[in-house]
Amino acid sequence: MTVILNEGDSAGTSGAASGSPVDAAPEPGKSTTRGRLVLTRFLRNRLALFGLVVIVLMYLLAFVGPLLSKWSYDEQDYTAFLQAPYPAHIFGTDKIGTDMFAQTMRGLQKSLLIGLLVAVISTGFAALVGAVAGYFLGWVDRGLMWMVDLLLVLPSFLIIAILSPAFRGKSWLLFVVLLAAFQWMITARIVRGMTLTLKEREFVKAAKYMGQSPGRIIAKHIVPNMASLLIIDATINVGSAVLAETGLSYFGFGVQPPDVSLGTLIASGSDSALTYAWLFLIPAGFLVVFVLAVNFVGDGLRDALDPTSSRGRKREKKADRDRDDDAPASTQGPDTTTSSTTTSGGGKA
C-alpha cells in the first residue's frame, strides 16, 4: 500500500490520488507492512541495490582488508620503492616503500568512519534543532534559525582551515565534530518546515490534548514521521562528508600524518598522477566509486519511500501489456493491497 506514513509522503500522495483516483479499500489482514513494501521497491531498483552492495563491501574491505595484509600502513618495505602493483604489494608501493594497499585501506577506513559519524551526528542534530524550532516557534525558533543562518553564511572550508592548527595533534574526532557542525543547517531548515506541517496534523494535536509533554511529542510523533527524509539525508550526507573530509585532508587541514585518509593519499599521489599513476588512481578510484554508490542508494531510497515516484513502480513488460487484462504480474505476492489512500475520494468534508 502506498499509504501515508509520513509528512513528506503525504504531500505526494494527495497528488497521486488526483492522478489515479482509484482506490481499492485496504483490507486489513491482507496487507503488507510499509517496511516490506519499501524494501520491495528498493530491491527493484538495480542501481541502488548495486550501490548498497558496493558500500557494504567497501566497509567490509576497509576493516577486514588490513587484517589480511601483512603490511601495516606505517611500515616501510625497504626492498620496494615506487613499485607498480605486483603480487607482494597488490596496490604497489610509494617512494618510501609503504604498501599502498595497507595505506588505502587505512585511508578508506578513516574516511568512511568520518563520513558515517559526520552523517549521523549532523542529521541527528538537524532533526533535533529543526523539530524544536518548528514545534516551539517564538524566540526558540528565532534563536535557532539565526544560528542556522549564521552558519550558512560562514565559509565552512575557511573556518575549518583556520581552526585546524589549533586541533593539530588532537583526536580526529574533533575534526568529525567540526565537519558535522557545518553540515546540518540545510537539513535543519527542511525539518523545521516539515515540523510546521506535522504540528498541524491531528495526531499531534491529539497527543497535545491528551496532555503529552512537548518533548515527548517531538520524540514520539514528530521525528519518527520524518524518518524517511532523515534516512535519505543521512545517506547522502555520508557521501558529502567523505568528500568534504578528503577535500580538507588534501589541503592538509584534515587528518594529520602519520595517520592517512583518502584525502591525504590523493594529495600525496597527485604529484605523480601521470608518472606513477597507481599512487593517485587507486585512492581516487575508491573515493569516486564510494560517492557514486552512496548517491545511487540515496536515489533508490528516495524512490522507494516516495509513493508518487514512478521509478520505483513495477515496470510492466511489453508482453504483459499486450496480454489479456486479468494477468496480474506474477512477481507479486497475493498479499499486497493497493491504494492511493482513501483520500482520493476527496474532501467529503
Partner: peptide, 27 residues
C-alpha cells in the same frame, strides 16, 4: 477527550494501534 475529523490524520501512522490507544493512558 477529542475525536478528530480526519481519521487519516488523527492517528500517528508510525505507531501500531496498541500504542495509539495506549498513549493517553501512558501520559
Amino acid at each position: 477527550q477529542v475525536v478528530f475529523q480526519d481519521p487519516m490524520a488523527a492517528l500517528d501512522p508510525r505507531l501500531p494501534i496498541f500504542d495509539v490507544i495506549a498513549e493517553p493512558m501512558q501520559v
